[in-house]
Design a protein around this nucleic acid. Structure first.
Length: 281
DNA sequence: ATCCTATCCTGGCTGC
DNA sequence: TGCAGCCAGGATAGGA
Protein backbone atom coordinates (compact mmCIF):
# COMPACT_ATOMS: atom_id res chain seq x y z
CA UNK A 1 0.00 0.00 0.00
CA UNK A 2 1.22 3.53 -0.47
CA UNK A 3 3.56 4.30 2.38
CA UNK A 4 6.45 6.72 2.64
CA UNK A 5 8.48 5.33 -0.30
CA UNK A 6 5.48 5.17 -2.62
CA UNK A 7 4.26 8.65 -1.70
CA UNK A 8 7.79 10.01 -2.05
CA UNK A 9 7.95 8.49 -5.53
CA UNK A 10 4.62 10.03 -6.48
CA UNK A 11 5.73 13.45 -5.20
CA UNK A 12 9.02 13.30 -7.11
CA UNK A 13 7.34 12.32 -10.35
CA UNK A 14 4.45 14.78 -10.00
CA UNK A 15 6.58 17.77 -9.04
CA UNK A 16 8.06 18.53 -12.48
CA UNK A 17 4.64 18.11 -14.09
CA UNK A 18 2.74 20.31 -11.63
CA UNK A 19 5.05 22.93 -10.16
CA UNK A 20 4.56 26.31 -11.82
CA UNK A 21 1.25 25.33 -13.40
CA UNK A 22 -1.98 27.16 -12.72
CA UNK A 23 -5.28 25.41 -12.10
CA UNK A 24 -7.85 26.51 -14.66
CA UNK A 25 -10.64 24.09 -13.91
CA UNK A 26 -11.87 21.71 -11.24
CA UNK A 27 -14.12 18.68 -11.67
CA UNK A 28 -15.22 16.77 -8.61
CA UNK A 29 -16.60 13.35 -9.56
CA UNK A 30 -17.06 12.09 -6.01
CA UNK A 31 -17.78 14.68 -3.35
CA UNK A 32 -16.58 12.89 -0.25
CA UNK A 33 -13.00 12.91 -1.45
CA UNK A 34 -13.00 16.57 -0.37
CA UNK A 35 -13.34 15.53 3.26
CA UNK A 36 -16.54 17.45 3.92
CA UNK A 37 -15.97 20.65 1.96
CA UNK A 38 -18.70 21.52 -0.51
CA UNK A 39 -17.55 21.17 -4.13
CA UNK A 40 -18.42 24.81 -4.88
CA UNK A 41 -16.25 26.01 -2.01
CA UNK A 42 -13.43 23.73 -3.09
CA UNK A 43 -13.64 24.98 -6.65
CA UNK A 44 -13.59 28.63 -5.64
CA UNK A 45 -10.52 28.08 -3.48
CA UNK A 46 -8.58 26.05 -6.01
CA UNK A 47 -9.52 27.49 -9.40
CA UNK A 48 -7.14 30.21 -10.49
CA UNK A 49 -4.46 29.20 -8.01
CA UNK A 50 -0.94 28.21 -9.00
CA UNK A 51 0.88 25.13 -7.72
CA UNK A 52 4.24 26.38 -6.51
CA UNK A 53 5.62 23.24 -4.91
CA UNK A 54 4.78 19.53 -4.58
CA UNK A 55 6.19 17.67 -1.61
CA UNK A 56 5.58 14.86 0.83
CA UNK A 57 5.00 14.77 4.59
CA UNK A 58 4.46 11.29 6.04
CA UNK A 59 2.04 9.63 3.59
CA UNK A 60 0.50 12.95 2.57
CA UNK A 61 1.10 14.76 -0.70
CA UNK A 62 1.13 18.52 -0.28
CA UNK A 63 0.63 21.04 -3.09
CA UNK A 64 1.52 24.60 -2.09
CA UNK A 65 -0.91 27.02 -3.73
CA UNK A 66 -0.41 30.72 -4.52
CA UNK A 67 -2.39 33.55 -6.07
CA UNK A 68 -0.75 36.68 -7.46
CA UNK A 69 2.52 35.51 -5.97
CA UNK A 70 1.10 35.14 -2.47
CA UNK A 71 0.74 31.84 -0.59
CA UNK A 72 -2.93 30.89 -0.71
CA UNK A 73 -3.58 27.61 1.05
CA UNK A 74 -2.67 24.02 0.31
CA UNK A 75 -4.05 20.95 -1.35
CA UNK A 76 -3.34 17.91 0.80
CA UNK A 77 -3.83 14.46 -0.72
CA UNK A 78 -3.75 11.01 0.85
CA UNK A 79 -3.75 7.87 -1.30
CA UNK A 80 -4.81 5.54 1.51
CA UNK A 81 -4.73 2.06 -0.03
CA UNK A 82 -5.65 2.40 -3.67
CA UNK A 83 -5.30 6.06 -4.66
CA UNK A 84 -3.37 7.03 -7.77
CA UNK A 85 -2.37 10.39 -9.19
CA UNK A 86 -1.71 11.08 -12.86
CA UNK A 87 -0.89 14.08 -15.02
CA UNK A 88 -1.92 13.29 -18.57
CA UNK A 89 -2.94 14.74 -21.93
CA UNK A 90 -6.47 16.18 -21.97
CA UNK A 91 -7.89 13.30 -24.00
CA UNK A 92 -6.56 10.61 -21.63
CA UNK A 93 -9.34 8.52 -20.11
CA UNK A 94 -8.93 8.27 -16.33
CA UNK A 95 -11.45 5.43 -16.14
CA UNK A 96 -14.51 4.93 -13.96
CA UNK A 97 -12.82 5.43 -10.61
CA UNK A 98 -11.60 9.00 -11.10
CA UNK A 99 -12.62 11.12 -8.12
CA UNK A 100 -11.35 14.61 -8.93
CA UNK A 101 -9.65 16.21 -11.94
CA UNK A 102 -7.81 19.52 -12.28
CA UNK A 103 -7.23 21.26 -15.62
CA UNK A 104 -3.80 22.90 -15.80
CA UNK A 105 -2.50 25.96 -17.65
CA UNK A 106 -0.20 23.83 -19.80
CA UNK A 107 -3.21 21.93 -21.18
CA UNK A 108 -2.55 18.77 -19.17
CA UNK A 109 -4.96 17.35 -16.63
CA UNK A 110 -4.29 16.09 -13.12
CA UNK A 111 -6.43 13.10 -12.11
CA UNK A 112 -6.89 11.58 -8.68
CA UNK A 113 -8.18 8.02 -9.09
CA UNK A 114 -9.27 5.65 -6.33
CA UNK A 115 -10.93 2.27 -6.76
CA UNK A 116 -12.01 2.20 -3.13
CA UNK A 117 -13.20 5.41 -1.59
CA UNK A 118 -10.75 6.11 1.19
CA UNK A 119 -8.45 8.57 -0.57
CA UNK A 120 -8.80 12.28 0.18
CA UNK A 121 -7.86 15.56 -1.45
CA UNK A 122 -8.60 18.43 0.86
CA UNK A 123 -8.01 22.17 0.68
CA UNK A 124 -6.79 23.83 3.83
CA UNK A 125 -5.59 27.26 4.93
CA UNK A 126 -4.06 25.78 8.06
CA UNK A 127 -1.49 23.15 7.18
CA UNK A 128 -0.43 22.76 10.79
CA UNK A 129 -3.94 21.71 11.70
CA UNK A 130 -3.81 18.92 9.10
CA UNK A 131 -0.24 17.72 9.62
CA UNK A 132 0.56 18.95 13.11
CA UNK A 133 0.06 15.72 15.02
CA UNK A 134 2.47 13.68 12.90
CA UNK A 135 5.68 12.31 14.33
CA UNK A 136 9.08 13.07 12.79
CA UNK A 137 10.19 12.04 9.32
CA UNK A 138 12.39 8.93 9.59
CA UNK A 139 14.66 10.18 6.81
CA UNK A 140 15.16 13.64 8.33
CA UNK A 141 18.36 14.52 10.17
CA UNK A 142 16.31 15.01 13.31
CA UNK A 143 15.55 11.28 13.45
CA UNK A 144 18.43 10.19 15.66
CA UNK A 145 19.16 7.11 17.76
CA UNK A 146 19.06 9.14 20.98
CA UNK A 147 15.63 10.49 20.17
CA UNK A 148 14.35 7.06 19.21
CA UNK A 149 15.70 5.48 22.38
CA UNK A 150 14.05 8.13 24.55
CA UNK A 151 10.70 7.84 22.76
CA UNK A 152 10.69 4.03 22.82
CA UNK A 153 11.42 3.99 26.53
CA UNK A 154 8.83 6.63 27.35
CA UNK A 155 6.07 4.46 25.92
CA UNK A 156 5.00 0.94 26.70
CA UNK A 157 3.93 -0.31 23.36
CA UNK A 158 4.38 -3.33 21.15
CA UNK A 159 6.89 -2.51 18.43
CA UNK A 160 4.66 -3.29 15.47
CA UNK A 161 1.68 -1.09 16.40
CA UNK A 162 4.07 1.62 17.54
CA UNK A 163 5.79 1.73 14.16
CA UNK A 164 2.37 2.06 12.52
CA UNK A 165 1.44 4.96 14.81
CA UNK A 166 1.82 8.07 12.68
CA UNK A 167 2.04 10.34 15.71
CA UNK A 168 5.14 8.41 16.82
CA UNK A 169 7.01 8.21 13.53
CA UNK A 170 5.53 9.36 10.24
CA UNK A 171 5.24 7.43 7.01
CA UNK A 172 5.71 3.76 7.95
CA UNK A 173 2.90 1.37 7.06
CA UNK A 174 2.37 -2.36 7.25
CA UNK A 175 4.96 -3.34 4.64
CA UNK A 176 7.85 -1.25 5.90
CA UNK A 177 7.10 -1.97 9.55
CA UNK A 178 7.50 -5.71 8.93
CA UNK A 179 10.51 -5.26 6.67
CA UNK A 180 12.26 -2.90 9.10
CA UNK A 181 11.68 -5.21 12.07
CA UNK A 182 13.14 -8.15 10.19
CA UNK A 183 16.19 -6.17 9.14
CA UNK A 184 16.61 -5.09 12.75
CA UNK A 185 16.18 -8.65 14.05
CA UNK A 186 13.36 -7.57 16.35
CA UNK A 187 10.11 -9.38 17.06
CA UNK A 188 6.92 -7.43 16.24
CA UNK A 189 5.57 -8.20 19.73
CA UNK A 190 8.68 -6.92 21.52
CA UNK A 191 7.98 -4.13 24.01
CA UNK A 192 9.27 -0.69 23.18
CA UNK A 193 10.44 0.13 26.71
CA UNK A 194 12.59 -3.00 26.95
CA UNK A 195 14.89 -2.47 23.98
CA UNK A 196 18.59 -2.31 24.68
CA UNK A 197 20.71 0.40 23.13
CA UNK A 198 22.14 -1.94 20.49
CA UNK A 199 18.63 -2.96 19.48
CA UNK A 200 17.52 0.66 19.18
CA UNK A 201 20.52 1.32 16.97
CA UNK A 202 19.62 -1.62 14.76
CA UNK A 203 16.00 -0.50 14.50
CA UNK A 204 17.02 3.04 13.65
CA UNK A 205 19.37 1.86 10.93
CA UNK A 206 16.91 -0.71 9.60
CA UNK A 207 14.08 1.82 9.23
CA UNK A 208 16.25 4.22 7.31
CA UNK A 209 17.94 1.68 5.07
CA UNK A 210 14.65 -0.06 4.29
CA UNK A 211 12.91 3.17 3.33
CA UNK A 212 15.86 4.38 1.26
CA UNK A 213 16.12 1.06 -0.58
CA UNK A 214 12.39 1.14 -1.30
CA UNK A 215 12.54 4.71 -2.61
CA UNK A 216 15.41 3.66 -4.88
CA UNK A 217 13.06 1.03 -6.35
CA UNK A 218 10.15 3.49 -6.58
CA UNK A 219 8.17 1.64 -3.93
CA UNK A 220 6.42 -1.73 -3.82
CA UNK A 221 3.73 -3.09 -6.17
CA UNK A 222 2.76 -6.58 -5.08
CA UNK A 223 -0.87 -6.22 -6.11
CA UNK A 224 -2.68 -4.36 -8.87
CA UNK A 225 -3.03 -1.10 -6.99
CA UNK A 226 0.08 0.98 -6.49
CA UNK A 227 1.54 2.46 -9.65
CA UNK A 228 3.68 5.53 -10.13
CA UNK A 229 2.18 8.59 -11.87
CA UNK A 230 3.76 7.14 -15.01
CA UNK A 231 1.68 4.00 -14.61
CA UNK A 232 4.67 1.81 -13.77
CA UNK A 233 4.95 -0.61 -10.84
CA UNK A 234 7.60 -0.19 -8.19
CA UNK A 235 10.26 -2.84 -7.74
CA UNK A 236 10.83 -3.22 -4.02
CA UNK A 237 8.47 -6.20 -3.74
CA UNK A 238 11.35 -8.20 -5.24
CA UNK A 239 13.37 -7.38 -2.14
CA UNK A 240 10.75 -8.25 0.48
CA UNK A 241 12.30 -10.38 3.20
CA UNK A 242 9.11 -11.18 5.10
CA UNK A 243 6.11 -9.19 3.89
CA UNK A 244 3.64 -11.35 1.91
CA UNK A 245 6.08 -14.29 2.22
CA UNK A 246 4.26 -16.48 4.73
CA UNK A 247 5.39 -20.12 4.43
CA UNK A 248 8.47 -19.26 2.39
CA UNK A 249 11.98 -19.71 3.77
CA UNK A 250 13.75 -16.75 5.30
CA UNK A 251 16.44 -15.72 2.85
CA UNK A 252 18.83 -15.19 5.74
CA UNK A 253 18.35 -18.34 7.85
CA UNK A 254 15.93 -20.58 5.90
CA UNK A 255 13.40 -20.77 8.74
CA UNK A 256 9.79 -20.54 7.57
CA UNK A 257 8.27 -17.04 7.60
CA UNK A 258 5.29 -16.81 9.92
CA UNK A 259 2.19 -14.66 9.71
CA UNK A 260 0.35 -13.50 12.80
CA UNK A 261 -2.14 -10.73 13.46
CA UNK A 262 -0.97 -7.84 15.61
CA UNK A 263 -3.19 -4.86 16.20
CA UNK A 264 -5.59 -6.03 13.52
CA UNK A 265 -2.80 -6.11 10.94
CA UNK A 266 -1.22 -9.01 9.13
CA UNK A 267 2.31 -9.26 10.47
CA UNK A 268 5.13 -11.27 8.91
CA UNK A 269 8.34 -12.28 10.62
CA UNK A 270 11.06 -14.90 10.79
CA UNK A 271 10.83 -16.89 14.03
CA UNK A 272 14.57 -17.52 14.04
CA UNK A 273 15.93 -14.08 13.07
CA UNK A 274 13.34 -12.30 15.19
CA UNK A 275 13.19 -14.05 18.54
CA UNK A 276 10.35 -13.17 20.81
CA UNK A 277 11.72 -11.87 24.10
CA UNK A 278 10.42 -13.89 27.02
CA UNK A 279 7.82 -11.77 28.73
CA UNK A 280 8.88 -11.26 32.33
CA UNK A 281 6.35 -10.73 35.04
C1' DA B 1 -1.76 5.25 28.56
C1' DT B 2 -2.60 1.55 25.80
C1' DC B 3 -5.22 -1.62 23.44
C1' DC B 4 -9.23 -3.29 20.89
C1' DT B 5 -13.06 -2.96 17.72
C1' DA B 6 -15.64 -1.05 14.17
C1' DT B 7 -15.91 1.81 10.15
C1' DC B 8 -15.06 3.06 5.51
C1' DC B 9 -14.71 0.25 0.42
C1' DT B 10 -14.24 -3.03 -3.38
C1' DG B 11 -11.35 -6.26 -6.22
C1' DG B 12 -9.81 -10.61 -5.74
C1' DC B 13 -9.79 -14.80 -3.72
C1' DT B 14 -11.74 -19.15 -1.49
C1' DG B 15 -14.90 -22.70 -1.18
C1' DC B 16 -19.06 -24.93 -2.32
C1' DT C 1 -19.61 -21.49 -14.00
C1' DG C 2 -21.74 -18.90 -10.53
C1' DC C 3 -22.06 -16.92 -6.35
C1' DA C 4 -21.82 -15.89 -1.40
C1' DG C 5 -18.67 -14.66 1.93
C1' DC C 6 -14.30 -13.16 3.44
C1' DC C 7 -10.11 -10.48 3.39
C1' DA C 8 -6.70 -6.68 2.85
C1' DG C 9 -5.45 -2.21 4.82
C1' DG C 10 -4.60 3.64 6.59
C1' DA C 11 -6.69 6.44 9.55
C1' DT C 12 -9.77 7.49 13.10
C1' DA C 13 -13.31 7.31 16.62
C1' DG C 14 -15.15 5.35 20.59
C1' DG C 15 -15.05 2.01 24.25
C1' DA C 16 -12.63 -1.05 27.61
Amino acid sequence: MPELPEVETVARLLAPRLEGRGITGVRVHWTRILGGMRPGTFRSRVEGARITRVWRRAKYLVFDLARRGQRDGWLVGHLRMTGRMHVEAPDWDPGPHVKVSLALTDGQKFHFIDVRKFARLIHTRDLEQVLGSLGPEPLADSFQVDWLERELRSRRRLLKPLLLDQTFLAGIGNIYADESLHRAGLHPLARSERLRRAQVERLHGAIRSTLLAAIAREGSSFDTFYRTPEGLPGGFQDEFLVYDREGEPCSRCRAIIQRIVVGQRGTHYCPRCQRRPRSKR
